[in-house]
């Protein structure tokens, strides 16, 4: 107690600050950093969850490098990212831009856009899965058949399945992005627009010279946030393809699903951990790259 009494006020403040910080720090160490470190450790081991862990060296990483499925999955993961992020960004901006100008039923429309974001991804994926079925139960194909157009194989196709799964995933994330964009639009000072109107510049100049440059922090946030989301896509893919997870022929399998299968159907924990480490590095790299590219000069 004597020790505490001898501290200056500033030192006491520091002690208290750390006392309050201790909880989140301990939480992070136990819940985040310890498992992360353990995953890196397991990636160099052989473990089937039941027996002992044995050292395997870099074997898991070598296996990964030579696994054609991994490279297929790697391409799929980036396909989700490269198609998903720009498409959802453009759509959500267009919606937010116009919704911002709209007064009539503004709240109701905003709610409609936000609703899918609040819906359970599992329920949504199953409903879309049934939409995509062939005749006689699929909504889309029944419609096509009714107007005399040949059926489209949505999910049982190596080319159509990935976009078919991506569509509801984009739709589900839209509400959140629209709300963030609208907050960004509201934060732009009115005086810029007033100045532009006095100068009589056309609307596209306003859009490209004022609105979009001033929205940059919002765009950076949404790009980083949705990129991480698409790199980690799982629920939609798994639930729409439970008969053949990530299929047909691995054409829709993202990295997270491959990790899940290695761990919980093949019980190859070391291999799954090695994939997790790779995913971690990809996420880190993509995020750093985007922050650098989109950073203010």
């Amino acid at each position: 107690m004597g020790f505490y009494k001898n501290l200056s006020i500033r030192q006491k403040q520091i002690v208290w600050a750390w006392a309050f910080l201790a909880l989140p720090v301990v939480f992070y160490v136990v819940i985040r950093f310890y498992p992360t470190g353990n995953a890196v450790l397991i990636s160099f081991q052989d473990w089937n969850l039941l027996g002992d862990r044995t050292w395997a060296g870099a074997e898991n990483y070598l296996k990964l490098w030579h696994d054609p499925v991994f490279w297929k999955v790697f391409r799929n993961t980036f396909a989700y990212l490269i198609i998903g992020t720009p498409v959802s960004l453009v759509i959500s901006f267009v919606i937010a831009y116009h919704l911002d100008k709209l007064r009539f039923m503004h709240g109701f429309l905003r709610m409609l856009y936000f609703l899918p974001f609040m819906t359970s991804a599992v329920a949504m994926a199953w409903v879309w899965r049934w939409f995509y079925q062939p005749v006689p139960i699929g909504l889309f194909n029944n419609f096509l058949a009714a107007v005399g157009i040949p059926q489209i194989e949505f999910l049982r196709s190596t080319t159509n399945a990935l976009p078919a799964i991506l569509a509801p995933a984009v739709w589900a994330g839209l509400g959140f992005q629209v709300i963030i964009f609208m907050a960004g639009l509201r934060a732009i000072p009115k005086s810029y627009y007033e100045a532009a109107r006095i100068d009589g510049v056309p609307w596209w100049t306003v859009l490209f010279e004022i609105t979009i440059p001033l929205l940059k922090p919002t765009i950076v946030f949404i790009v980083v946030f949705s990129s991480i989301g698409f790199l980690r896509i799982f629920d939609h893919v798994f639930n729409m393809t439970t008969n053949d997870p990530g299929g047909p022929l691995n054409s829709t399998k993202p990295l997270v699903l491959m990790i899940y299968q290695s761990a919980f159907t093949d019980f190859d924990m070391g291999y799954a951990a090695a994939q997790t480490v790779v995913l971690f590095l990809i996420l880190l790299l993509v995020s750093l790259l985007q922050l650098r590219i989109l950073r203010d000069r």
Binding site: R129, W130, Q133, P134, P136, I137, L155, R156, N243
Partner: peptide
């Protein structure tokens, strides 16, 4: 028959 007929 058709593979994938009625999902399951």
């Amino acid at each position: 028959t058709a593979f994938g007929f009625m999902d399951e």
